[in-house]
Design a protein around this nucleic acid. Structure first.
Length: 478
RNA sequence: GGCCCCUUCGUCUAGCGGUUCAGGACAUCAGGUUCUCAUCCUGAAGAUCGCGGGUUCGAAUCCCGCAGGGGUCACCA
């Protein structure tokens, strides 16, 4: 059957329900749809599926929108920005669904459901007891009442076998036994997802539906509905779930699936998160692991998406993030780091911060590591001699001996020009002069300057701290 | 229970009948980079390709069973 229509401009939508925040599982279908749209220089659409009034959570639509923007998944049509097929909120499109429903009623393909919810529930329980799948159509009434909007409106299905192509899953087949009379419009007047998404996709000229695995079982029912409405189904792609820590069940909020905005707040770069999520279940067939956004748009293809679920691995996310941080220019990194500096840095100049940043760029796994890594560049560190006790080499020396080494360093540096070459020469000269191993001399100097468990190279650190500051800190510890 | 999908190192994966006693990446461990941490580089360990049958000169790759896992059978999406 057909493969991807990459040459044609896609209209791909992300259609979440505003029922909470977006986690990595949810963002993945958004990302894939976005990639398909951008790849074909087509259109990415956000549509809010808010037809279940009980599940809507106030504020979650705004949160969803913020999440998409934070990740750089900009949409071209959506509830807040409009577009040629507005509105993009299903609760504002009720008349559209009524029109589509009327077509089905007129063709004898929809009818009012005369049963009460309790009666249907009784049928369902009986089926379960008999270990049979529940099919409403086995109870389809012979002479249903006229639909007046107070009862659910059901689709009168025509059971048959289907084969169809899914961009991710390949060719799929089912028999007629899975086709049933779904509810099109609920008794509260709102359409079900099953009906609304088909109407909207048609109205909005959607070309690609990308959705989670849970919809695969109902796809034949949708195909039946498309036929009854005289519609050609869009290209469908079913992506597997991202798995929770146990590796078996899909990742859920219960497993602690984080809000994607929290990753950004924790210093994960949007490009890194996008790279990571894309490569959870997708690769381009080469050994490349790190992709820029541009490369993803070029290389992504639904047909190379994995059919099995993948476990979310935060370790790997951190590695991907580190790779992206390191590939950033200093300018770019400075921009992104702005809100992550420690409070001690308030007085520091931009230029000084840039110098510090250059030293720690290779050491950042996330931007939120910044305070831990840089504090001592902005405020005098507090001496902590227990760190010396814990050091295998230094604990062999007396405090006096250590202070002598610092004094010698001080004296040498007073007459040293603070540039990389002269500092390196001075340190080498001190090694010769004191007869100490680097493991002793450099360690004690590093402690005196930073009192931190780790820091960049000695000469670089002194250079950024500056001569005055370096001498002062050495002096303080003698 | 019916229907559908999935199953390669701990994890993410490459692999589409032979050049693979299965390649890469994360994580782990060891070594190198004048001190630490990190980066970077090198190396090690780690998968009887879920199991059992077939087809074939030859199978992780094709076919059939089985098992395990997942999804679904809502007036939720």
């Amino acid at each position: 059957m057909e493969t991807e229509k990459n040459n044609k401009k896609a209209r791909a939508r992300f259609a979440p329900s505003p029922t909470g925040y977006l986690h990595v599982g949810g963002i993945r279908t958004a990302l894939f749809a976005w990639l398909v749209a951008r790849q074909s220089r087509g259109v990415f659409i956000l549509r809010l599926e808010d037809t279940d009034r009980n599940r809507n959570v106030p504020g979650s639509a705004e949160h969803l929108i913020k999440s998409l923007r934070s990740l750089g998944l900009e949409y071209d049509e959506g509830p807040d920005i409009g577009g040629p097929f507005a509105p993009y909120r299903q609760s504002e499109r009720l008349t559209k669904y009524k029109e589509w429903a009327q077509k089905l009623i007129d063709n004898g393909r929809a009818y009012a459901d005369p049963y009460t919810a309790e009666e249907v529930q009784a049928f369902r329980e009986q089926a379960q007891k008999d270990k049979q799948p529940f099919l409403y159509r086995n109870h389809r009434p012979e002479n249903p009442p006229t639909w007046d909007g107070t009862k659910p409106l059901r689709f009168k299905s025509e059971p048959k076998a289907y084969s169809w192509h899914d961009e991710v899953m390949g060719d799929l087949n089912t028999g007629p036994e899975v086709i049933d009379d779904l509810i099109l419009i609920k008794s509260d007047g709102y359409p079900t997802y099953n009906f609304a998404h088909i109407c909207d996709d048609a109205d909005m000229e959607i070309t690609h539906i990308i959705r989670g695995q849970e919809f695969i079982a109902s796809t034949p029912n949708y195909l039946n509905l498309y036929e009854a409405l005289g519609l050609t189904p869009p290209i469908m792609a079913t992506v597997p779930h991202i798995m929770g820590p146990d590796g078996k069940k899909k990742l859920s909020k219960r497993d602690g699936a984080k809000d994607v905005l929290d990753y950004i707040k924790d210093g994960i770069l949007p490009d890194a998160l996008v790279n990571f999520i894309a490569s959870l279940g997708w690769n381009d067939g080469t050994e490349q692991e790190i992709f820029t956004r541009k490369e993803l748009i070029q290389k992504f293809s639904l047909s190379r998406v994995q059919r099995s679920g993948a476990k979310f691995d935060e370790q790997r996310l951190l590695w991907v993030n580190g790779q992206h941080i390191r590939s950033l220019s200093l300018d770019d990194l400075s921009q992104r780091a702005q809100s992550f500096w420690p409070s001690e840095s308030k007085q520091a100049t931009e230029d000084y911060k840039r110098q510090v940043l250059a030293l720690v760029q290779d050491r950042l796994k996330t931007l939120s590591d910044l305070p831990l890594l840089t504090k001592y560049f902005f405020a005098d560190p507090t001496p902590n001699w227990s760190m010396i006790e814990a050091n295998k080499q230094l604990k062999k020396l007396s405090k006096d001996e250590l202070q002598h080494l610092l004094k010698a360093t001080y004296d040498k540096l007073v007459t040293t020009d603070f540039n990389m070459d002269d500092l390196t020469d001075a340190l080498n000269a001190l090694l010769a002069q004191t007869g100490q191993k680097p493991a002793i001399l450099f360690s004690i100097i590093r402690f005196a300057l930073t009192w931190a468990p780790f820091s960049p190279g000695l000469a670089e650190t002194m250079l950024v701290l500056g001569k005055e500051n370096t001498l002062e800190r050495l002096h303080k510890n003698t």
